[in-house]
Design a binder for these strands. Structure first.
Length: 792
DNA sequence: CAGTGAGCGAGCTTCCGCTTGACTT
């Protein structure tokens, strides 16, 4: 190594940029995040020995550690330049310990922005490792391990193997469960909204004014009474109020707000957003994407100002610095912004372009002037009623930041469509109605969480970090606590009563309500585990738990509190809860008796059984073993807590034999992958619009023929054992349950059996699998040994 | 992958936060 100085940062992309700023006396390397952690197996914390953590080098970090050890030996100085937060300080400390760095040649430096100035300044102001801050991290780490590894095994025993609980994930599940219960308990109430269109009562002026009544009626009678009054009423303008208003831009993106906007505007999942952002970051196009800071570097603010001035003129520029307000923010980075603000677009995939442009707009807008508008409220009095109509208009006087960026909102209510231009009007002016219309509306249950709105809520509660929002959601889905789904809405009727030219008309209309797209739904297991944790680990699952321990971590960081004392105070009562919960009986999946089947008179109940949620018709009777109860699995989306007797009874109608085709029975059922028709040994999925309860024999045969045709098209060549198939990623060779690659330049139509065999040989023959494809074969293999449920 | 519905019972699972690739049928 020719360089005297080794600088270690956390990310390789960051290393690359910094190396440019520092010149050839510095070698900049990356640690790729934490290099050491608690042992993976077992608690890894010695309770009896003052909670001493047992650290080991992480599996995937041996190479990195080896390399860094070598370089640090050769260097005169080692600069530990990880982030300036709890985790960053711990990374620096673990590096020092693991690499065996000599304190005399080790320097700890920090910078908040990656600019030449900031880095050179940092080099001029080195310090020692702040052991208090490191201890705060150790406390955080140990606490999470104790919670996770002491509670999860209880769930394995009492509920189901491989489940998990933790300070963050369990609260995320709780949010979703509680929201679902609010929704189950919600009874929509109808009300009537009245809107009217007015015209001037004089032939020389022409306009129409849309307005809305200032009250909503609860009953149909009130509504009709009011419309009857309107028949003979006189309408006049009793007030015109003009008010200036302004709108300010939102701060630049943090991880959480980027995830929310990309979800609202493009429908990206939070994981997708992070992957795309990662690519942009690695290409040097944006700053770091895992951040909770809304801070912009002075350089960036200056660049924004220049860009805005040259694009839109100086009146559009307004320099702003934003305060980060989210709980527990650590502010180790800048906000997410383009590295070059003059680039409004970049090259890359369509998704990268979209996300980049969103980031550019948001950053630029955050440095632009307020928009100013004038809001006009016109009040229309009714001669024979105290109610009033109101028309609200908005005129944009100066667009400011709105020229570039308009933030989307989560609750797209249908109500705010009435912000049109207000025509010129005079006070006391008489109006005549063109039409008055009352529409029946319904109160809405609280919205289900989407991935992004869950992240927003978690951030508000200070739970999780920018680097964990997306992984946490994957975890609670993987555990089966939660599913992300679309759900179709239901048809509902509503009334429309209109008054036109003195005549009142009543219409019945239909609408679809409650359609959900990519929302998070709790499962029965999720609800059961949540209730168990609420009952036994109330402290840990409390919404304020994280905020409370964060306060104590801060005290540790400032040296006021010793970390082992803090952990001890938490652990003693917590561990008592753990011991106590072992004694209680396993939670009995809240069996619900729904009622009796009118056909057989037998009771119908639902509960969680060995293979999941199940409906049961009849009860086991030892005297009459022939009278066994009938079971049917609940459908996807049905919850034990909310399923109705009617819905449960329907489950017993399947599987249904609907006739014969080519000598084989046609049986319709609902399986793991939705409704299907079984024909001999083949299963064919029903279409989106096919109802398994009413699907006909003719339709089933049609589907079978369709599938046969598809199978035919899928096969390019068939050499018996060896097949050339068309897959998602292009053609490939299929042989004994395994897939083999086909070279890109290979002409698939000219392939011979011999050529295929040669290609398979070249790639090495894989062990034979019994399943259809590689993936399903492994899944099936895992299922072979069903795990026993231990009873306490 | 399209069923099952107790029991025998080894040895496994798990946390949160920092970071990136290798690979996909």
């Amino acid at each position: 190594m020719q360089q005297d100085n080794l600088v270690i940062v956390e990310s390789p992309a960051k290393a690359k940029t910094i190396e440019k700023f520092l010149g050839d006396k510095y070698l900049v390397k990356s640690s790729y995040g934490h290099i050491r952690d608690l042992v993976k197996k077992g608690l890894g914390v010695d309770i009896a020995n003052r909670y001493k953590p047992e650290y080991v080098i992480s599996d995937d970090k041996h190479g990195v550690v080896k390399e860094l050890k070598q370089f640090s030996k050769e260097a005169k100085f080692v600069w530990l330049a990880s982030d300036e937060d709890r985790e960053g300080e711990a990374i620096a400390w673990h590096l020092q310990e693991t690499l065996g760095l000599d304190k005399n040649k080790t320097r700890r430096i920090v910078f908040h922005e990656i600019t030449k100035n900031a880095i050179q300044n940092a080099i001029k102001n080195p310090r020692d490792i702040d052991i208090n801050l490191v201890d705060a991290q150790q406390a955080r780490r140990v606490l999470d391990r104790l919670v996770g590894f002491e509670v999860s095994p209880i769930l394995w025993k009492k509920v189901k193997p491989s489940l998990s609980a933790g300070r963050v994930q369990s609260v995320a599940v709780r949010l979703i469960v509680e929201r679902e219960r609010e929704i189950i308990g919600f009874n929509p109430e109808s009300y009537y909204r009245v809107s009217a269109i007015f015209n001037p009562d004089s032939p020389d002026s022409k306009f129409s004014l849309k307005s809305e009544l200032n009250v909503k009626f609860k009953t149909l009678k009130e509504t009709e009474d009011f419309l009857n009054h309107c028949k003979s009423a006189e309408f006049s303008i009793s007030g015109i109020e003009k008010k200036p208003a302004k709108k300010s831009p939102s701060p630049p993106f943090t991880t959480s707000t980027l995830q929310q906007e990309a979800s609202r505007k493009f429908g990206f999942s939070v994981g997708q957003t992070m992957t795309i952002a990662q690519h942009l970051y690695e290409a040097g196009k944006i700053t770091y994407m895992r951040t909770d800071s809304t801070n912009l570097s002075t350089l960036a603010i200056e660049a924004a100002k220049n860009t805005i001035t040259s694009l839109y003129g100086a009146t559009y520029s307004k320099t702003r610095q934003y305060k980060t307000k989210s709980k527990g923010a650590q502010e180790a980075h800048e906000a997410i912004r383009p590295t070059e603000l003059e680039n409004a677009t970049v090259s890359g995939t369509a998704q990268e372009k979209k996300l980049y442009e969103l980031i550019w707009k948001r950053t630029i807008a955050s440095q632009m002037s307020d928009a100013s508008l004038e809001r006009t409220v016109v009040t229309i009095s009714i001669s024979n009623s105290n109610y009033k109509f109101q028309a609200v208009g908005e005129v944009l006087l100066f667009d400011g930041f709105l020229k570039v960026y308009i933030e989307s909102s989560d609750d797209e209510t249908e109500d705010d469509n009435s912000k049109d231009l207000i025509p010129p009007l005079k006070e006391n002016q008489k109006l005549i109605y063109n039409g008055i219309e009352a529409t029946e509306r319904f109160t809405q249950h609280p919205a289900r969480y989407s991935e992004a709105s869950l992240v927003k809520k978690m951030e508000e509660l200070g739970i999780g970090r920018p680097s964990t929002y997306a992984p946490t959601i994957s975890t609670i889905i993987r555990r089966g606590y939660v599913t992300k789904e679309d759900r179709p809405g239901e048809q509902r009727e509503y009334l429309k009563i209109s008054l036109k030219k003195g005549v009142i008309k009543k219409d019945k209309k239909q609408e679809t309500a409650g359609t959900e797209k990519s929302k998070l739904f709790p499962s029965d297991i999720g609800m059961l585990v949540n209730d168990f944790l609420m009952e036994n680990f109330n402290n840990v699952i409390d919404y304020n738990f994280t905020a409370n321990v964060e306060e104590q971590f801060d005290e540790i960081a400032s040296g006021e509190l010793e970390w082992t004392k803090m952990i001890d105070k938490f652990y003693k009562p917590f561990h008592e809860d753990v011991e106590k919960s072992k004694d209680i009986s396993r939670p009995t999946a809240s069996e619900r008796v729904l009622g009796t089947d009118p056909k057989t008179g037998k009771p119908v109940s639902v509960r969680i059984a060995r293979f999941g949620p199940v409906a049961q018709l009849g009860v086991a009777d030892e005297e009459q073993p022939a009278n066994k109860p009938v079971y049917a699995s609940l459908k996807k989306g049905q919850l034990i807590e909310s399923i109705s007797l009617e819905e449960a009874l329907k489950l017993f109608d399947l599987p249904r034999n609907i006739g014969q085709y080519e000598g084989e029975d046609l049986v319709v059922g609902v399986g793991k992958f939705g409704p299907y028709v079984r024909f001999g040994k083949t299963f064919v999925s029903l279409g989106k619009n096919d109802d398994p309860y009413i699907v006909t024999k003719e339709r089933a045969i049609e589907l079978i023929e369709e599938k046969r045709l598809k199978e035919k098209e899928k096969t390019i060549k068939d050499f018996g054992d060896i097949k050339v198939l068309n897959g998602r990623f292009g053609p490939y060779i299929f042989y004994k349950g395994n897939n083999y690659k086909l070279p890109k330049d290979e002409n698939k139509d000219a392939l011979t059996k011999e050529k295929c065999e040669e290609l398979i040989q070249k790639q090495g023959i894989k062990p034979e699998k019994t399943g259809k494809t590689g993936k399903s074969a492994t899944a099936a293999a895992k299922k072979v040994s069903p795990v026993k449920k231990t009873k306490k």
